[in-house]
């Protein structure tokens, strides 16, 4: 069974924002209003000169146990057979409960469609055509690795199986399919 997910390798993220721009153009997000499907916040730890800076790409976690889906009153938020969490813009009435229910702050209201919207892994526009999501396709750091987490031959599958990649806040019980390889100093 295909189980689409994404590994995010924080070790090589340079915070360049290519993924953001690619996503905005690919998916025509309402970025002009500051609403977008992916963000790359910058974190600084420590004080001069012993500081660590981490860029952490954020997007929909495509949870196995997605709170957005269980709170949706109309079934607009749903999960595809291959594990991608999507919003059906026809059925969404825009109650925004999912926006508040998503612990990963991955959702926003697209006023043009009068519907909630979010990262789709570029499901219909790219993945179903055999391509990878726009953010993965453009990433100069090879930070984002999209693939079938159940496929041991895929890079994503290998990393998922290795245990190197970890979910964000597993305590929330959402079981995300976006996993992070943490940044560790090697010397």
């Amino acid at each position: 069974m295909t189980r689409y997910g994404m590994i995010i390798d924080l070790r090589s993220c340079i915070g360049c924002g290519a993924c953001i721009a690619a996503c905005d153009m690919e998916n025509e997000t309402p970025w002009e209003e500051g609403k977008r499907r992916t963000h790359v916040p910058r974190f600084t730890f420590g004080s001069y000169p012993n500081i660590t800076v981490v860029y952490m790409p954020r997007l929909c976690m495509h949870c196995e146990n997605p709170p957005c889906v269980s709170v949706c009153p109309t079934g607009a938020s749903h999960v595809t057979v291959d594990g991608v969490v999507l919003v059906d813009h026809e059925i969404c009435i825009g109650c925004k409960y999912c926006v508040v229910a998503c612990p990963y702050d991955a959702r926003y209201v697209d006023e043009r469609m009068r519907s909630v919207d979010k990262c789709t892994f570029c499901y219909t526009n790219r993945v179903l055509k055999g391509d990878v999501p726009a953010c993965d396709a453009t990433c100069p750091g090879r930070v984002r690795i999209f693939g079938d987490l159940d496929d041991p031959n895929s890079e994503a599958g290998r990393l998922a199986a290795s245990g190197l990649a970890k979910p964000l806040r597993p305590d929330l019980g959402t079981n995300p399919k976006v996993l992070y390889v943490p940044k560790v100093k090697s010397m």
Binding site: C16, G17, A18, A21, A22, M25, E28, A137, T138, P140
Partner: peptide, 22 residues
């Protein structure tokens, strides 16, 4: 609509930055 990286070009080898996307 969109500018995608071209993997045929050995310089960027299928990668493109935010400026390229923009």
């Amino acid at each position: 609509r969109k500018i995608d990286p071209n993997p045929n070009n050995p310089a960027n080898a299928g990668n493109l930055c935010a400026r390229g996307q923009a």
